[in-house]
Amino acid sequence: MDWEAILSNTASWLISPETIAYALAALGLAVHFGYGGLLNFGMAGFMALGAYGYAISILTFGLPWWAGIIVGMLASVVFAFILGIPTLRLRADYLAIVTIAAAEIVRLLFTTQVFDEVTNSADGLGNYHEGFRAANPFPEGTYGFGPWEYNANGWWVRIFGIGLLIVAALLVWLLMRSPWGRVLKGIREDEDAVRALGKNVFAYKMQALIVGGVFGALGGVVFALPSAVVPSVYVTSLTFFIWTILLLGGAATVFGPLLGAVIFWVIMGFLSNVLPAMASSGLLPFMSTTQAATLRFILVGLALMLIVIFRPQGILGNKKELTFVKQ
């Protein structure tokens, strides 16, 4: 096995656009679940709206790239209202059911032939990069060091994504240290108690759903920036990867989702390199290299279970702060 190539490939995941995109979405989910107790199982839907909002604005309506990002964010706000208005007054589990279904509906709407002219159905969208790349402040050429060597476009996507991530993390930090965040955490603990103290619980939950949803949409945009928008990406398993990242890092923390995303993608990157290599050098009998590559998804599921059982508060979470067992 070529360990040098494996390690180099693994390290490149540290600041990949995928890592940044997942971190943004996980940060949104931290606002929803970690701080607000909202069981959103439709993060893939928010991400899809961000990505498609961006691509369609540019391709169909000829908007500039930054306006595309704003459209993606607005689409997620509308989606949050559609999800929240009927469900946020009900028990927490209703939101879970509705979000998982709504995200699937979003994906199917983008997949169906009916809107083929705009969405290009199952093939997805591409070639919307011109505007974003024209705005690239970095000089032409390939630079960097070690495993992190990219061309100008590669750097532009990464730096822009990291910029968004920093702003988002700062916003979450500001919100959660404030009285607004205190009300939200109170709602997570017991919404009737908060209601009895004169707070408009519904409005706070709606605001949290919107804020987290917009972060999810931005994650979708960053995911779309370097490549293409393909509907088959925004499946339910994407939502569960985001959940894994959130629980791994720590649900009620600002840096947990970022750390979780890095760990998740580095491990995924490592496994996707090392498992096929092991299979081809005969270390994994009964398995082809493709089978070995999918083995990592099984391991992710296993990891999610182990986290929830043995460290429910995540790596960065306060031991007492978030336990699944409420007394």
Partner: peptide, 24 residues
């Protein structure tokens, strides 16, 4: 209904009305 994972002081502060900082 004590808000278990808020501190005692945070519980108390939550009771105060008309807080500017409760606007997002």
């Amino acid at each position: 209904k004590a808000l278990g994972l808020l501190t005692v002081l945070e519980n108390m502060k939550l009771g105060a009305q008309k807080q500017t900082g409760e606007n997002m």
